[in-house]
Design a protein around this nucleic acid. Structure first.
Length: 631
DNA sequence: ATAGGGTTAG
């Protein structure tokens, strides 16, 4: 296991001015993941798309209609004037539908499309496919493409972006590959519109390697290719690689756009690096990209995830237009910082402002309620989704409700809620309940839930750990041992804990049990000292969550000291001046012992500590945590 | 008509 991994921020930032200087590539992760296969380099060529000679139709007023009902009225008029088979008129109608794609407009478009018998160019296929690619049934765009080929109509350079978009949104990797092969055969793969869509298709289908491979082959990369690739890295949790690409594009003299900044900010949020985030915010301002609503929304998210709720609030306050997404991001920001009350207030304000909430707004709101213990409000909001806002709850909303009830100790209700769901519950849903059973010490329900989980997925080590600890805590050793045996049999492994802390523009990573860090001895000496200072004021190591039951109490206590978040805290205490705020990011949920220790450290050592968990923030200050011990 | 797009339960 890697003992230490550092990401030198300086190399990512290179300089504080907008025009960065080229430097040697530093992102070892980017280098390390460079694909082995290098095919023939392709040159990006811009093809001019001539304005399409849209055939004239007497029904040009179509462009002004906004509903299917109006469209039908116009169609009736078309029929009345005997133009129902006039190709220009049909084209116009279909184009309108595809620009406003919903299942019903597309159904209507398909009926019109089927009336046309002589299709000899790609135009109408493209138009139809464009509409389908943006509906819940993108696969239809794919079958339309195949239909086009079968009818002997050759695809043009507009056919490929459309069909690739459809592959991307339906995650059809195999089909995407075939389309790629065909584009290559017809010489469209280096087209300036096709190439970025190919990168995006591979990325969205989960094959980041293929995306990167394609990206590496293109000699003359444009902004859009860079944007697609940076987004691919950010989405697959490779922030270092994304930021390295960001620097690389600047070195190549390509000017980043608002879209670039969205991925860069999202990478920054993943890293949790506030200093880097502030630098990027400056960069955005300098380059005049701060007027985009989406960029500001990404800034809110970045600041919230880099532990500065104040900055998030400031960005939100300074926006002059705010859409649903901006409000949602701010609600989520309050929620992850444990300010359920403010999230709820903001939601009410949003409704007063006449902004329509969407599914994600409700996700943030329910999340806020469950983390703040606002059970009844949460349930009320959940029920208002269908009745008041015509939003159909999805699996994630159900997950929030399960959590809402279970976290508050209403375990039976939560169990019943999962059982009564109209859809098949996922292991994640049960897992949510299991961890709440652990927290509330309900062993019997926990066992039933555990059995439901392993029917569905027996590879998740965390589940075995929770149930085994529950047995241990009530002294049911035999059952505990059989769980541990089962875990071994199934080769289920628990993800190792990893925490990182940013000191002097460098992110330092610590893994649990990490004894190989250069400062390892200092860290442990520091932790000994911390424990010595905390014990008199009531710190009692909480060994109840230690998995290995055959350890002595002392061994358990020592094993706790190797937790990655403690190492990160110790590192921060040693390497920063007194009083400096510590900002730590952890890949799992924080354990009870580390949580209570962090509270005491914040008091005794007079430090503010922001600890970003797998799913929320803990802000320790003067001996208390912003989560009020409800997490 | 043309490519890339932020917020998302545990």
């Amino acid at each position: 296991m890697a003992a230490l991994s550092t990401i030198p921020l300086n190399s990512l930032l290179s300089s504080s001015s907008a025009s960065t200087t080229p430097a040697a590539p530093t992102s070892h992760s980017a280098q390390g993941r460079r694909p082995a296969t290098v095919l023939v380099p392709v040159q990006l060529k811009e093809t001019r798309w001539p304005p399409h000679p849209f055939p004239a139709s007497p029904f040009s007023l179509l462009l002004k209609c906004h509903s299917l009902r109006e469209l039908r009225q116009i169609h009736a008029a078309v029929v009345k004037s005997g133009l129902q088979d006039d190709p220009p008129t049909l084209t116009k109608l279909i184009t309108f539908c595809s620009l406003h794609p919903t299942p019903s407009t597309m159904l209507y478009a398909q009926q019109l499309f089927d009336r046309i018998h002589h299709l000899d160019d790609a135009l109408l296929f493209n138009t139809m496919a464009r509409g389908y690619a943006r509906t819940p049934t993108p696969k239809r765009a794919l079958s339309l493409f195949i239909d086009m080929l079968e009818r002997g109509v050759s695809p043009d350079d507009y056919s490929f972006p459309t069909v690739l978009k459809a592959c991307a949104s339906s995650k059809a990797l195999e089909e995407g590959r075939q389309v790629h092969a065909m584009a290559a055969k017809l010489g469209f793969h280096a087209n300036i519109y096709v190439c970025p869509t190919l990168i995006n298709m591979y990325a969205e289908c989960g094959d980041v390697r293929a995306a990167r491979c394609l990206f590496e082959q293109t000699v003359d990369r444009c902004v859009v290719s860079y944007n697609a690739m940076i987004m691919a890295c950010a989405r697959s949790s490779r922030p270092g690689e994304a930021l390295a690409l960001f620097r690389e594009m600047q070195a190549e003299g390509i000017k980043p756009t608002d879209v670039t900044m969205l991925s860069v900010l999202s990478s920054c949020a993943l890293l949790g690096s506030l200093e880097l985030g502030r630098w990027i915010h400056e960069y955005i301002k300098k380059n005049g990209l701060d007027s985009y609503v989406k960029v500001n929304t990404a800034l809110i998210d970045m600041y919230a995830k880099c532990s500065s709720l104040d900055d998030a609030v400031r960005v939100f306050g300074e926006m002059d237009t705010r859409d649903t997404q901006a409000w949602s991001a701010m609600i989520v920001a309050y929620a992850i910082h444990g300010r359920g009350d403010l999230a709820v207030n903001l939601f009410e304000e949003m409704k007063r402002d006449g902004i329509r909430p969407d599914g994600i707004t409700f996700l943030g709101l329910l999340y806020a309620c469950s983390h703040a213990g606002l059970v009844d409000e949460g349930l009320r909001y959940f029920h208002s989704m269908n009745s008041g806002h015509a939003i159909v709850p999805g699996i994630k909303h159900y997950g929030c409700v399960v959590d809402l009830l279970a976290r508050a100790g209403r375990l039976q209700e939560s169990y019943q809620f999962i059982n009564d769901l109209p859809i098949k519950p996922t292991p994640i849903l049960w897992r949510t309940l299991l961890s709440a059973c652990g927290g509330h010490g309900n062993v019997d329900l926990g066992r039933r839930v555990f059995e439901r989980i392993i029917e569905l997925d027996d590879s998740h080590g965390g589940d075995y750990v929770i149930i085994s600890n529950m047995y241990a805590s009530v002294g049911r050793w035999e059952e505990m041992n059989s769980i541990r045996k089962l875990m071994k049999e199934k080769r289920a492994v628990k993800m190792p804990g990893c925490s990182s802390i940013e000191v002097d523009n460098t992110v330092h990573e610590f893994f649990s049990g990490d004894g190989k860090h250069p400062q390892s001895r200092d860290l442990h000496r520091m932790l000994d000292e911390v424990v010595q200072q905390l014990k008199p004021i009531g710190y009692v190591p909480d060994t109840s969550q230690v998995f290995h039951a055959d350890m002595t109490e002392e061994e358990k206590e020592m094993s706790l000291r190797y937790h990655s978040e403690k190492l990160a805290v110790a590192f921060g205490l040693i390497n920063t001046p007194p009083g400096t705020t510590l900002r730590i990011v952890k890949n799992l949920r924080v354990c009870v012992d580390c949580h209570s220790m962090a509270k005491l450290v914040s008091e005794v050592f007079n430090r503010e500590i922001f600890l970003r968990d797998l799913n929320r923030f803990h802000h320790f200050k003067n001996g208390i945590c912003s989560c009020s011990d409800y997490w």
